[in-house]
Computed example of a mutant assay.
Amino acid sequence: MNNKISFCRSGIFRVLLKAVERQYPGTLNKIDLPDVIFENPMRLIPLPEISRYFNKLAEKTEDKLFIVHCGPHISLHDCNHLNYLIASSNDLFTAIMRFNAVLSTFQSNSEAFMIRSGSINKWRYNDISFRDKDRLFDGIIAMWFFIQLLRTFHGKEYLPRRILLPGNQIGKDGEVENFIGCSIDWNQKETQVWFTYDELVKRKSYVQQQLFGSKLDHQEILSYIDMPLSNDFLRCIYEVINYSKDFGFPKLENVAKLINLSPQQLQRRLKKEHLSFTELVNHQLLCNQAPRLLSKYSISEVSRMLGYQSEQSFTKAFRRMHKLTPRQYINELIERW
């Protein structure tokens, strides 16, 4: 059994969803994805959920090639922090180096690097977390992100020289190639985007340099690098519980399903770590989330945000954990201020 758990940051997934909405207006209203997930672009979404939403988007758009057709609408500006870290670079080489460096902080197990072969630069990308069609879809998304990065320097009509994709051909013969505007090699080991060395040594104009987003503070930078290792089981479950709460109070069956385990398998894994599922839920909701939220929202709002059925049930659980009620906790905060 593969116990590794991988994540994608909500901010990156939001870039794709915005591109889908531009291509297929009204689509996002048809999928059950709470807005609260995107309030913090650093929120972690389990990759099996990303795969599930791939399928839902294909169904709701009624387009099996939606992942190709929405690509031109992908914009780095939809992820302000990513836009600043990468697209603010004065030259393309630096932008690519930054893009490659931060990619793994946005999606677990993803890796990207560039090699030179004669006069051709080959940008190479792979993520071992995905399989089959989902791996192809992930590769196409990465391809579009990189093409949009190239277009930041070379203009919106820029086309790469060649593309390699990890999966069976989708669409009719030549359909995807004609849409993107260059040749594609299918069934490859990884995603690659080829462009010439002359295209690499490209600097931005003064006007282009004014287009990047706002700077990051130190806390935001730390949140970028705080990506759980896939083999850190407890930390990963902790983050899956945090994601699950936005769909209701986290239940063993739901969390197990999100990571492709049975409830019994998850319980056995936690038992080996000398922890119960209930303990992890209480730590995430009552120790990690609740104190932070109570400084900003009312008790009833916090109870709802954490998935409790009522304010009374939240108050009871909070008091059992902290030996004081949420109201008493808030009063203590006020006294400290």
Results as ranks from 00 to 15, higher is better:
190 E>K: 08
98 R>V: 13
19 A>E: 11
112 A>D: 05
82 L>R: 05
286 L>N: 03
177 E>C: 02
255 V>C: 10
48 P>N: 08
302 V>C: 05
211 L>P: 02
301 E>D: 08
297 Y>M: 02
94 T>S: 15
257 K>F: 07
309 Q>V: 03
323 K>H: 15
320 R>V: 01
62 E>Y: 06
267 Q>Y: 13
190 E>I: 10
282 N>Q: 14
186 W>Y: 11
271 K>D: 12
316 K>P: 00
228 P>I: 05
259 I>C: 03
298 S>V: 12
283 H>P: 00
94 T>P: 09
283 H>M: 06
232 D>C: 09
223 S>G: 01
329 Y>T: 10
214 S>M: 05
282 N>C: 13
19 A>S: 15
24 Y>L: 03
312 Q>K: 10
284 Q>P: 01
268 R>W: 12
276 S>W: 09
214 S>F: 07
58 A>N: 03
14 R>E: 05
176 V>R: 02
177 E>P: 05
281 V>C: 13
231 N>H: 12
218 H>Q: 13
75 S>A: 11
35 D>R: 13
273 E>Q: 15
200 L>W: 11
161 R>S: 15
72 P>F: 10
113 F>C: 07
115 I>K: 13
119 S>Y: 12
325 T>E: 04
175 E>W: 00
55 N>H: 11
120 I>E: 14
129 S>D: 01
76 L>K: 07
335 E>N: 08
28 L>G: 09
263 P>D: 02
265 Q>N: 12
